Amino acid sequence: MSVLTVANLSATLSGKRVVDGVSLVVGKGSVTGLIGPNGAGKSTFLRACLGLVPASGTLHLDGVNLTALKPSERARHLAYLPQERETAWAMSVEAVVALGRLPHHARFAAPSQRDEAAIEAALVRMDLIPFRHRAVTSLSGGERARVLIARALAQETPVLLADEPLAGLDPHHQIALMRLFRELAAEGRIVIASMHDLTLAARWCDCLLLLHGGRGHATGLPEAVLTARTLEDVYSVEAFIGAAASGLIVQPVDLSQKKDENDHG
């Protein structure tokens, strides 16, 4: 079975240790939610996995040391959905999605039949066929998000890393995206996505990695990670935690009494 192993990953930005010795092991066919408050190191953790920021530690996929690969080679194993969704050029939607195929062929090479099939499948999957010839700069934020997801799908990698993919999406498309992640997992891929919506994380993820202050605070099943004590310690909130037929419900309802005491003490 495919296994992605992140061992003792650390990253320092502007002289500050932003990610500090984080480790994670996830298996094929799983969705892992990367959670934690703002500034916890979630985005930097994902970027460090991709080699986009200076980092120490190792990343292995099925025994292959991804940290030793060139960026173009690593891109055949890891696809990335960034948090930033602005596009500088008025490229067509189809052209942007086609960028996902660049790691698979030589520069300036004509698209192969497999490239064209992967692009078409990604457009269909993200319901972008009606937009394929439109300039991506003319689309709404949510539509641009779907284009970038399609680009990552066209890359056809065993691992997808997504940085706050739910941001800017309405509830319908948020749930549709989490369903897509589950479908990708059912196909045997590994998905790691950072997110702030704790109920969606609990409902759709197999495992959660909670970061706090750049370190791994807790890892495990959603019900083991999302406890009242943990939410108070890490997020400084009181939360309603309940069970429904669809899974765990986690709803922050107020700042924790402990925080109020600290603020006024």
Rank of each mutant, 00 (worst) to 15 (best):
M1E: 13
S2N: 09
V6T: 02
V6M: 03
N8L: 00
L9D: 03
S10R: 09
K16E: 12
V19G: 09
V22C: 07
S23W: 07
V25W: 00
V26F: 01
V31T: 09
L34V: 04
L34Q: 04
P37R: 15
G39V: 04
K42V: 11
K42N: 08
S43Y: 10
T44G: 11
L46A: 11
L46D: 10
C49W: 04
L50D: 08
G51P: 09
L52Q: 13
V53R: 04
V53C: 05
A55K: 08
T58G: 15
L59V: 15
L61V: 11
V64E: 08
S72L: 14
E73S: 06
R74Y: 07
R74N: 07
R74H: 07
A75I: 01
R76E: 06
R76K: 15
L81R: 10
L81H: 13
P82G: 11
Q83C: 01
E84A: 14
R85F: 07
E86K: 11
W89E: 10
M91V: 01
M91A: 14
V93E: 03
A95G: 02
V96D: 01
P103V: 00
H105I: 02
H105N: 08
R107E: 03
F108P: 00
A109R: 14
P111G: 02
D115I: 10
D115A: 07
E120K: 07
A122H: 01
M126A: 14
D127C: 06
P130L: 05
F131H: 15
F131V: 05
R132L: 12
R134M: 10
A135P: 14
V136K: 06
S140H: 02
G141P: 11
G142M: 06
G142D: 01
E143D: 06
E143I: 02
R144H: 11
A145Y: 07
A145I: 11
A145N: 14
R146H: 13
V147R: 06
L148I: 06
I149S: 04
A152I: 04
L153A: 01
L153M: 08
A154Y: 02
E156K: 00
T157M: 07
L160W: 12
L161W: 00
A162K: 02
D163S: 15
P165K: 11
P165V: 13
A167P: 09
G168Y: 08
L169E: 11
P171Y: 05
H173E: 03
H173C: 03
Q174P: 06
Q174L: 08
R179G: 12
F181G: 09
A185E: 02
A185Q: 10
A185F: 11
A186S: 15
E187D: 13
E187L: 02
E187H: 02
R189P: 06
A193K: 12
A193E: 05
A193W: 08
D197K: 07
L198N: 09
T199P: 09
T199W: 03
T199I: 01
W204I: 02
L208A: 10
L209F: 12
H212K: 09
G214L: 11
G216L: 02
H217N: 00
T219H: 12
G220L: 01
P222R: 07
E223D: 15
V225P: 03
L231W: 08
V234M: 12
F240D: 06
G242F: 02
A243H: 13
A244Q: 12
V250D: 13
V253T: 13
V253E: 06
Q257D: 06
K258V: 13
K258D: 14
G265V: 12
G265F: 13
